[in-house]
Design a protein around this nucleic acid. Structure first.
Length: 462
RNA sequence: GGCGACGUGGCCGAGUGGCUAGGCAAGGGUCUGCAAAACCCUGAACCCGGGUUCGAUUCCCGGCGUCGCCUCCA
């Protein structure tokens, strides 16, 4: 298997340090507000990585942190007159809900920053002892020039960074590029005790500490969005490797941004489509398919049309599977699985993997039309759908109220879709096509599609 | 200004130095109640200008354009 390693700027063979336990750390969200579609993309990209690794036989330790203390959470809490804990818990619950609905497996460990402050303080002390950090007016900063490799991930060099520095000069820092490991607390802010007074950890040290604590030094894969390469991941490397002298993570994987009207979706600008909102509007599996259609490293543009396209594609997959009800017990067709693996082994080429899936559907449909055995194709289909996390049934519920209202117009009290289908069936039998078609068309308006088959009418939410 | 990514048919989107991506939409057909849904089939592309090559959408150089990072951010 080959993966693109940002550290090398190349796609290179991926061999786990320990094949029995592949270790992945993914930068999770800062829980200040509810998730948007971009967060979902990152979560899905790495969920597919994890599922694929497990499918090919690895055990995977998958850590995704929750940053539940930072300046923005504090600002939001004071704005809403809530505690930072309340803000964080509420947002974290929204993330969990949205990620579950997307069909992501839960991380094996989901550490919270606030539960690891002691370890962070210890790590900062180590950095001070080693001369890589210094205290200044209750803050502690990492000294960038003390780490010669600084810039190796983002391919920046210190001189260029200084030249392009836009941040205002802060006289507590010895160098504009130095970044905070510890921030002193202002009155009323949540804080933890430390040798430098009451305060809170800086964002970057949180990830360094939690990653090393759960996965050890030199773990396999560190992931996140491309927007985190600099400074966040660069700083994580600096802190960790300065402290230990050992490599921090072996592979760095970064997912591309989700764009809205050609521009990056970002909380800070309010330029967002919320994830939960999208999941109320579209089938969760369609949203997932929308992500997977584009290679994970490329930018992906959100649009209504793109989601509708994904929805239609998903329907093709589902209707194929509906033709062969139940589970299949035979082994999957080997050539299909081989092609699927080839696509996934090539830096998780989801789009190419989907092509294999759709080709399988076409071949399967043709075989069904001629009455050939399709069980090994269906088995392969199920395997691939499982690895991609697309097997969930339709997630959007029929609107019971609207259906009942429709039924009422035909004199049915508290009717459901099945009642309407029964009515339509009777109309069809007596060749009252207008009535039958009116019911069908009205149901389509309610996102319910009817399929007339030899065994009678079936319906599904679309 | 520095670093980086990308520009493929109507739309989305893989990939390759010469040989079919795939999806959506469109057109044709099968089935059917003339339908709907479903299924099958079909076509069309590689930003511009040079260069390397027997041959480039694919490699190299230049241009134009879009986007990301350089500040919090998945």
């Amino acid at each position: 298997m080959q993966l693109y390693n940002t550290l090398e700027r190349a796609t290179v063979p991926f061999v786990p340090g320990n094949p029995d336990r592949v270790t992945i750390y993914l930068c999770g969200p800062t829980v200040q507000a509810e998730p948007h579609l971009g967060h979902g993309r990152s979560a899905v990209a790495f969920d597919v990585l994890r599922r694929y690794l497990e499918w090919v036989g690895h055990e995977v330790e998958f850590v995704r942190n929750v940053t539940d203390i930072d300046d923005k959470i504090i600002a939001r809490a004071s704005e809403l007159r809530m505690t930072t804990e309340e803000v964080a818990n509420e947002a974290a619950a929204a993330f969990t809900d949205a990620y579950d609905r997307l069909g992501n497996l839960r991380p094996t460990i989901e550490p919270k920053a606030t539960e690891h402050v002691d370890e962070m303080v210890a790590a900062i002390e180590t950095l001070i002892d080693l001369g890589h950090a210094y205290e200044s007016q209750g803050d502690v900063y990492f000294s960038v020039r003390s780490f010669p490799d600084y810039g190796k991930l983002s391919r920046h060099n210190i001189a260029d960074l200084r030249a392009g520095e836009r941040a205002e000069h802060d006289d507590r820092k010895r160098d504009v590029l130095d970044f905070a490991l510890w921030k002193s607390a202002k009155p009323g802010e949540p804080s933890w005790p430390s040798p430098w007074g009451e305060g809170r950890p800086g964002w970057h040290i949180e990830c360094s500490v939690m990653a090393r604590m759960y996965l050890g030094d030199g773990f396999d894969i560190h992931g996140g969005g491309t927007d985190l390469i600099f400074p966040h991941h660069e700083n994580e490397i600096a802190q960790s490797e300065a402290a230990t002298g050992k490599p921090f993570a072996r592979f760095w994987m970064h997912n591309g941004m989700l764009n809205l009207s050609g521009e990056k979706m970002a909380k800070s600008t309010g330029h967002v489509v919320t994830l939960l909102g999208a999941l109320d509007q579209w089938d969760a599996v369609a949203v997932r398919l929308f992500y997977l259609r584009t290679h994970y490293r490329k930018p992906l543009d959100y649009s209504r049309a793109a989601l509708e396209d994904a929805e239609a594609s998903l329907e093709r997959l589902r209707s194929f599977r509906r033709r062969v009800p139940g589970s299949v017990e035979v082994s999957p067709r080997a050539d299909v699985i081989e092609r699927f693996k080839a696509a996934m082994d090539d830096d998780l080429d989801g789009a190419a993997a989907l092509a294999v899936l759709f080709e399988t559907v076409r071949e399967g449909n043709s075989a069904l039309d001629t009455g050939s055995d399709v069980s090994s194709l269906v088995a392969a289909f199920d395997e691939m759908m499982g690895v991609l996390g697309l097997t969930a049934p339709a997630t959007l519920e029929a609107d019971d109220g609207a259906v009942a209202a429709l039924a009422a117009t035909y004199g049915i009290v508290e009717g459901d879709v099945d009642d309407l289908l029964e009515l339509r069936d009777r109309a069809r039998q007596s060749k009252e096509w207008e009535t039958a078609d009116a019911i069908r068309d009205a149901l389509i308006e309610l996102h319910i599609t009817i399929e007339d088959t030899a065994d009678g009418a079936r319906w599904h939410r679309h």
